[in-house]
């Protein structure tokens, strides 16, 4: 069983501090937090791309991992959309149709809209299984239809650890665990539905349902719909 362990991890820089302690088992974990709270820093720590000031990050039985940065432009290495797919070891003819970019194989990736670039990047990331998949703001810039499609893919991941850092407020996948960064510390809210009541960064729609006594079973659109229609 793949596992990620944060053992008294602390990151410090210029009057700013983030502390994180916790174990991430297989399943989908969502982490939220305010702007500047350290979500991207934590993603880098978890991926082993940034050393902790103190404490340690341990990866158990993790033979493959992938981190998707918040800014898709940071991942681009190909000079065309087709080359970008190939740089991931993927066949453009299978990737591009799913992104709606079939006619843009020869285009410069930097000439795509930001949403198109995100779609291309996510399609390349999600084309392979990973023991540990870290996604920093995966829904940013995606249109509503693509958010739904991406949520369905993430909800369907049957193995490995998936960690989502997001402030998306409406269209979210089915998740197993919710965490949030509060006052410089990573806190575990719990699993839905119980964990939703501890989630201070819960989207307004979920807070409203809880206040009405209709706590959803999870946070996916289908779960919210079921709760909202409950009598």
């Amino acid at each position: 069983m793949t596992r990620l362990v944060l053992d008294e991890v602390v990151a410090i820089r210029e009057g700013w501090r983030l502390a994180a302690q916790g174990t991430f088992d297989e399943g989908v974990h969502l982490i939220s937090g305010d702007v500047g709270s350290g979500k991207s820093t934590l993603a880098l720590l978890m991926a082993g791309l940034l050393p902790a000031t103190s404490g340690s990050v341990k990866w158990e039985q993790c033979s493959s991992q992938m981190v998707s940065f918040q800014f898709p432009e940071c991942h681009i290495t190909g000079t065309t959309v087709r080359e970008e797919c190939e740089s991931w070891g993927l066949d453009p003819s299978t990737i591009l149709p799913s992104t709606g970019l079939s006619g843009k194989g020869d285009a410069d990736p930097f000439c795509l809209s930001r949403g198109e670039l995100k779609r291309l990047h996510l399609a390349c990331v999600l084309a392979r299984p990973y023991d540990l998949l870290i996604l920093d703001e995966p829904f940013s810039s995606l249109d509503a239809r693509e958010k739904l499609r991406t949520c369905n893919i993430l909800s369907g991941r049957s193995r490995g650890i998936t960690i989502l850092f997001t402030h998306e407020q409406a269209i979210l996948p089915h998740v197993g665990h919710i965490w949030e960064i509060r006052k410089g510390r990573l806190e575990y809210c719990g699993s839905p539905p119980e964990g939703l009541r501890n989630w201070q960064h819960a989207p307004p729609l979920i807070r409203k349902l809880i206040a009405e006594g209709k706590t959803p079973q999870n946070i996916s659109p289908d779960a919210l719909k079921e709760a909202a229609c409950r009598t």
Binding site: S32, G33, D34, V35, Q70, R114, G115, E137, S140, S141, H167, Q169, H201, P203, P204
Partner: peptide
Amino acid sequence: DECDSHLDSRC
């Protein structure tokens, strides 16, 4: 231009 895609709800 879609600057809200980088902001949390409070922000």
